[in-house]
Simulated assay, not measured.
Amino acid sequence: MVNYVQTIREKVGHMPLLLPGSIVIILNNKGQVLLQERADGDQKYGLPGGLMELYESAEETAVREVKEETGLHIYESELNLINVHTGKDWVVKLDNEDVFQPVSIVYYTTKYDGELTIDHNETKSLKFFHRDELPNHMVLSQRKYIEQFNAMIQSGEVTI
């Protein structure tokens, strides 16, 4: 598969881009959330997910990224939309000077199959955490997604 972002970056350099992606809050039967300790330089915890490839739906992106990063299979029909996050407050500038504004489509699911499998290229560890006891060293935006999800549960807007 051609890496869409890499192909665009070769053409536009560090110019700011809009990059859509999907992120999934996966809950086990205890209501705990699956977090991935990333294998990249900062080794922060985060939610499984990633950027959309050309011709892919947001749901297809979620299924593909979760499978790549965790080994689990999730189902498009079982993805529940939480929110879409984007805007000037979310703009990211990477160490390599690339700038992008993510369009993060955040879902949750309680339905998955398979065994947790670590792809050491992207993942150092995978672990379920209580939603109110998240690790300190976590991607800030994704901590906010979980907090929003918790608030939706508290308000009765979401039932798990």
Results as ranks from 00 to 15, higher is better:
S77A: 09
A62M: 01
T70M: 11
G50W: 11
D119A: 02
P135I: 06
Q36V: 13
T61M: 11
Y45I: 02
S125W: 05
L47W: 07
F100E: 01
V33I: 06
W90I: 12
E147Q: 14
M15P: 00
R64D: 06
V12L: 02
V139I: 05
G41L: 08
H73W: 04
N150K: 11
F149L: 06
N121I: 07
L81C: 14
E147S: 07
T123E: 00
K11Y: 07
I23N: 14
Q32I: 00
Y45F: 15
V103Q: 13
M1R: 06
N3L: 02
L51T: 10
E68H: 03
N96V: 01
T70I: 13
I82R: 15
D119C: 02
E122S: 04
I8G: 01
G114Y: 00
K67S: 10
P20M: 03
Q142N: 02
L140K: 15
E68I: 02
E68P: 00
H130Y: 09
F149D: 05
V139N: 08
E56W: 04
H130R: 09
Q154Y: 10
E68C: 03
L79P: 09
P135G: 01
K67W: 04
D40C: 07
L19S: 06
V63Y: 07
L116V: 04
T117S: 08
G71C: 08
I146Q: 10
H130S: 10
V139T: 02
T159G: 04
Y45R: 02
K93P: 08
K93L: 10
E60D: 12
V63D: 05
L54V: 12
K124A: 07
V2D: 05
S22Q: 02
R131K: 15
V106A: 06
Q36A: 11
K67R: 13
G41W: 09
N136F: 12
V63G: 07
V12I: 14
N121S: 10
L134I: 10
V139K: 10
K111Y: 05
I26D: 04
I160M: 14
K88F: 09
L27F: 12
E78C: 11
M15Y: 08
L54D: 10
